[in-house]
Nucleic acid binder design. Structure first.
Lengths: 149, 149
DNA sequence: CTACTTGCAAAGCCTTTGCAAACTA
DNA sequence: TAGTTTGCAAAGGCTTTGCAAGTAG
């Protein structure tokens, strides 16, 4: 199995940490814990799910703190926001635009970054519409493999 | 220039009308006016923009009525909802999933339905992830041609 | 010590809902 | 006339903000 260093959770964690330090941010225990979770982004949690997960080790943590830290990470390009309808989820492991597959049965959010054509599409949009693509949000809704049985 | 009958505003208007009739809906002047606008969907308006546009001929119309009618049209598959962050826009002229290009300078929402690869991508997602795609939301953010000068 | 961060509660924003009055068929 | 639709205002759900108290460096 090939390991992509750039997507290694430990590497992601250090990268985020350095970005926040460069910014002059102070590292609190809550922030470090959030960075740990975001560096993996298993299942692409939303703010509430992060809140629930962090409340066990840090019972006094607040949703506001989570939103504030996520905002900083977004501004630094260290987290990709998945824009579901009225429900933002976050990917800190692959903090760049990539497709996501959303299962309408179990709610799972799967990465679809192995899809080819992505560069081709961006290029075609540039050529055909003279539109300079800077970001994208590619969401596919349907039924995942597990829910098809 | 080739005219696609299915996308002709008059045809779209009649189709929407029939769908609502089949459903047993009563046709009020407000609804008819909204259908007229949606059958074109010029610029892909959001609820507030529809409200502003309809308030001239119908000063007493309310935002709630617009949302309620849009909901019916969505349920009948007669309108495609473009899910921008906290700001839904609506396409009643092409009421099926297709890409949209959003200009971050002027805010324009352009159709990107001439992009090829779309069927190919859906197919690849099916094959590679065994994920059955039912809907999609393909948003490309960037700078439109007009704003590049 | 100083400036940044936190938690709480309140406010914002878009959208939906409840309900009596108005209206379509 | 019967049942749907309307407008209004209030409520909902997610996210942001203001501020005094707490904390990192």
């Amino acid at each position: 199995m090939i390991i992509n260093t750039l997507l290694d959770p430990e590497f992601r964690y250090q990268t985020m940490l350095n970005k926040l330090r460069d910014r002059g941010c102070r590292m609190t225990s809550h922030r470090l814990a959030l960075l740990r979770i975001m560096s993996v982004s298993e299942g692409h949690p939303n703010a509430t799910q992060l809140y629930e997960k962090l409340r066990e080790p840090f019972p006094t943590i607040s949703l506001a703190t989570i939103y504030k830290t996520l905002l900083i990470l977004k501004e630094d390009g260290q987290v990709f926001e998945i824009d579901l309808h009225n429900d933002s989820h976050y990917d800190g492991n692959k903090p760049y635009p990539h497709p996501h597959l959303i299962c309408s049965k179990c709610g799972a959010i799967l990465d679809g970054d192995d899809v080819s054509f992505l560069n081709a599409i961006n290029h075609e949009i540039q050529e055909k519409y003279k539109f300079q693509v800077a970001q994208s949000q590619l969401l596919f809704y349907g039924v995942c493999q597990n829910c098809q049985d």
